[in-house]
Amino acid sequence: MAEALRRKYTLARFFQDFGLVFMFLAVVAALVVLSPGAFARPQNLIGIIKQASINGVLATGMMFVILTGGIDLSVGSIVAFTGVIAASLAHPGEHSLAVAILAPVLVGAAIGVFNGLSVAKGDIPPFIVTLASMIMFRGAALIFSNGAPVFNVSDGFEQIASGFVLGWVPYLVVYFAIITAISAFVLRQTVFGRRVYAVGGNPVSAAVSGINVHAVIVGVYALSGALAGFAGLLLASRTVSGSPTAGEGYELTAIAAVIIGGVSMSGGVGKWWGTVIGALLISVIGNGLDILNVSAYFQLVIMGAIIYFAVLVDTKGKVSRR
């Protein structure tokens, strides 16, 4: 009986669990072969990770939200709103740099708490709550900045995103790595992480098991908001300005990274590294297509097709596993 229950770890299972990694490696290998000189240079590779970092930060927060079965469309607008706030607090000689760093993160977290409370206590679908936030805070960013980018930021502020560790690793890459490490730790090792999966898997059973479901939901939206605020800070630093029109469509790229990473849109299923690879893959393909001189219009078609097939493979895999 025990023998019959023991499942063989088949090649198919292996590919299903790690297929994304292979797909990623295959794309990288193909680009190395097609364009060894331009693509495989260390500088270019670091640049790719740097490209992926802001989206990666957003996608990390998005992953937590999607794991609970929700969605956060407001992150792009939070990037713009917190970006203009950060830039306006970063004029040379006005405030300490810490203010310009903390304010956007806290504002983002506060917006996240608003989203989370509306979803949890108000029982409004996440799509609608965050769609409303997305529109509202885009407006707030435009009001705050009078519709024009905020310039004149201090050198220290500029350094936040454009500095290097040891002279060659961009700070952006370091932030992305640290946030990824923390998110992996939280999801795998902590009680909170386990609760996130439980709430996404079956919120009713989670509540009956004594989990404060509302607190978990507010928590993930707050986290997503805080990370979006941090991304807003990074983008403002990188562009040396706070633009009220920045971050448009960022929420969709973040969602794309999470989906490519194999996180289930219905919640409860997904690994931390999936999102990292999802974000990197988007960046690698963008970079590779640039190097291969593919037009930006075609790049959109290819990116859409990749998202489509990632989900298709994922769904088909699940069906055949039954």
Partner: peptide
């Protein structure tokens, strides 16, 4: 199925969820 289990979770995750502390 409705209130007892997280069907997308593992056996272990389901066993420990109410006693994580």
């Amino acid at each position: 199925k409705m209130t007892g289990l997280n069907l997308v979770g593992t056996v272990e995750e389901n066993i420990s969820i109410a006693a994580l502390d």
